[in-house]
């Protein structure tokens, strides 16, 4: 998921030792009572660090996420699809902006966060390191990736840090349109010509496993989850969210007349859930390490945009200074 902890955190980093125990206790009591923590409030250092990491990773995911879909805007097959996709990708860009602003309230600048992304220090969701090969990938991403994002983001509207929670409220309002446009593309293709149906099935085959990996490692292997849950930075476990996503999505796939690339997938009456086959976590960790198929393309595109834009940002800043001087004179 955009917010799954993808970075190793040292024990020292997570320790509370530097924080006065009475302040920590008061803080934890407020969080337990579901109060929002605001930028000016006292907070443990580890809480601040975890939030900066999570929110900036979320922001980076939104921005890197514009690349795989941006890849098809100029080739969208109708004017309506072009406009919808452009509007969708623009929303994601806006999400990145809200989230960088939320993270800035914790004392890091947008530039610092972007530097961290470009140097490889900060992570972004593994899902965006897969290539978009056909138009059907626009359908699969909207349906599955935005679908998974919604699953993860809805609980975050009640996350303990106020600016983050409020950003999530704005973002969630836009996400359902993203998923709908994706599913609509899949529906059109699944009911289209044989070639279109093949495209749709192929996209589902490629995006299914990476989508369910987005929720992150299984709970028993997710070391920082417990503290994040206690601090209400995270509100539901990886496995719970993953199960909910699968339960909702499988019937949608069947309604399209498509098959899922998991022979072990079947409804379990007793559990009242779908059972699913083993997830290839080795693949997941490889992508986290930066070994995804198009990881290099994604990073070089972001770095290029940033470097090519340096003179533009400098010009805007220089003009603002000159203008202020002229106005003062």
């Amino acid at each position: 998921m955009y917010t799954t902890e993808l970075q190793k955190v040292s024990a020292l980093d997570n320790s509370l030792s530097a924080d006065p125990p009475e302040l920590v206790a008061a803080f934890e009591a407020r969080v337990a009572a579901d109060a929002f923590i605001e930028p000016k409030d006292w907070m443990p250092q580890a809480y601040r660090r975890t939030l900066v990491r999570q929110i900036s990773q979320h922001a980076h995911s939104e921005i890197v996420g514009t690349l795989p879909e941006g890849n098809w805007i100029t080739r969208a097959p109708s004017l309506r699809r072009k406009a919808v996709l452009l509007a969708k990708v623009q929303d994601e860009c806006g999400h990145g902006l809200y989230l960088y602003c939320a993270a800035e309230t914790l004392g890091t600048s947008r530039e610092q966060m972007i530097e961290a992304l470009h140097s490889g220090k900060a992570k972004y969701s593994t899902i965006f390191n897969y290539p978009t090969l056909t138009w059907a990938d626009m359908g699969a991403i909207g349906w599955l990736v935005d679908g998974a994002a919604i699953m993860n983001q809805v609980p975050l509207q009640r996350t303990s840090y106020g600016p983050y929670a409020r950003a999530m409220v704005r973002i969630c309002k836009e996400e359902s349109f993203h998923q709908r446009q994706g599913y609509e593309i899949m529906m059109t293709l699944a009911n289209g010509s044989a070639a279109q149906k093949r495209m749709a099935q192929d996209a589902l085959n490629r995006w299914w496993w990476p989508s369910i990996m987005m929720f992150g490692p299984p709970d028993d292997n997710s070391p920082n989850s417990a503290q994040s849950m206690r601090w209400r930075i995270k509100r539901e476990s990886n496995d719970d969210l993953r199960q909910r996503f699968i339960d909702v999505t499988v019937p949608q796939a069947l309604a399209l007349g498509l098959t899922l690339p998991d022979p072990e997938l079947k409804w379990n009456e007793a559990r009242d859930h779908y059972d699913y086959g083993p997830i290839d976590w080795e693949e997941f960790y490889a992508v986290v390490r930066g070994e995804g198929q198009v990881a290099k393309e994604r990073m070089s595109a972001r770095v290029k945009a940033w470097e090519d834009g340096a003179w533009v940002r400098e010009a805007a800043a220089a003009h603002a200074v000159k203008k202020a001087k002229r106005n003062a004179a």
């Binding site: 623009q90 834009g309 940002r313």
Partner: peptide, 11 residues
Amino acid sequence: CGHAAALEVDL
């Protein structure tokens, strides 16, 4: 889309 100098310009 996705390649401008700043998010605001992209938008």
